[in-house]
Structures are given as C-alpha cells and as structure tokens.
C-alpha cells in the first residue's frame, strides 16, 4: 500500500486549524487540495477569477468569524499586491499556500520573472513567508504557519517549492 500523498496531510492541517473557507485560482500543484476541498461538505469553496478576490474573501470570512485559506501559484501573487495589504490593515490572520513556478526545472520562461520575485513581493507587503522544499517538512510547516497566522493575526504565506511539487512536464524527454 502506498502512503497517502503529502497534500492529504496539508489538508488535514488546514482542517485542524479551523479553516472553513478555501478560495483558489487553479494550479496543477494544488489539484489534490482542491479535490479534497470540493469533497468536504464542511468547507466553503470559492473558485476565483483572479487571486486578489481570494484575499478579499478571506477578509470577509474574518469579519464573519471564519478562517480562510487562499490557494494560488506564484504568478498570481503579482495580482494580489494591493489587496494583500488588507489583512495587515484589518489586523486579521491570513493564510495562503503558493505553488512555485519559474525556479526548479522550469520549461516556460514566462513564469520566471514573477516566480523569482514572489518572496520579495510578499515580504515587501508585510507577509511572513515560509518555504517548504521537502514533503517531510511541508505538513508541519503548514500547520505551524496556520497557527501563526490565525493566533498572531498576521498574514502568512507558505511557498511550495517547484522541487517539492515537481516541475510541470510540457514535452517528454527524448528516448521515452
């Protein structure tokens, strides 16, 4: 029997942290979490047209007494810059899980500029940034980051490195 994917542990950590709303702009690296969220009758799931919507949703969830998490990829961070100041202004906890592009083994150069700038941009906006490079670390890192975000009332981002999620394969290597 194979071990369950690490994403199942991440989802369990979100549940333990009391997350009741999940907003997302789809990314292949988040597909398992998105499936789990949609299968969970005790989770409000909101697919967004752009990532800043998810930041605003989380602010509304806070006002209404619930905790939210935004799933996005690194390119989407650039779409959130003004809005992601909102949790700081409101002194509300905020958690986002970000799959990285444009670093480890990237095929598509269009993903590289925002991927390289992701951590800098988040930090510039006052978001606390953690980075998960291995499946051994990632579940604990999400659990601790959720605890930090919601109990210290600060915005926290966890970056899932491209090495962790695996670079997207566009073309099969020659010989396969």
């Amino acid at each position: 029997m194979t071990a369950p994917p690490w994403q199942d542990g991440v989802y369990a950590a979100l549940k333990t942290a009391g997350v009741k709303q999940i907003a997302y702009v789809p990314d292949a690296g988040h597909s398992r979490l998105i499936e789990l969220a949609h299968a969970d009758n005790d989770m409000h799931v909101v697919v967004c047209t752009t990532e800043e919507e998810g930041v605003a949703l989380a602010a509304g969830a806070h006002l209404g007494g619930q905790r939210a998490c935004l799933l996005m990829q690194s390119s989407g961070v650039g779409n959130t810059i003004n809005m992601i100041g909102l949790p700081t202004t409101m002194r509300a906890g905020f958690l986002t899980l970000i799959t990285m592009r444009g670093e480890w083994g990237e095929f598509n150069g269009w993903q590289v500029p925002m991927g390289q700038a992701t951590e800098t941009v988040l930090t510039a906006m006052g978001v606390h940034v953690k980075r998960a490079d291995s499946k051994e670390d990632v579940v604990d890192m999400v659990a601790a980051s959720a605890y930090l975000a919601f109990n210290s009332a600060i915005p926290v981002a966890v970056l899932f490195s491209q090495r962790l999620i695996g670079a997207k394969v566009f073309v099969k290597p020659e010989g396969e």
């Binding site: 009741k20 709303q21 800043e52 605003a56 509304g60």
Partner: peptide
C-alpha cells in the same frame, strides 16, 4: 475592487 468578495466571505460565514 474588494467589496463584493468581502461581502461573499461574510455571507458564507
């Protein structure tokens, strides 16, 4: 640009 989505977060909660 965030008013509608903040409203949605409140409405779901």
């Amino acid at each position: 640009g965030g008013a509608a989505m903040i409203g949605l977060g409140v409405a779901l909660a």
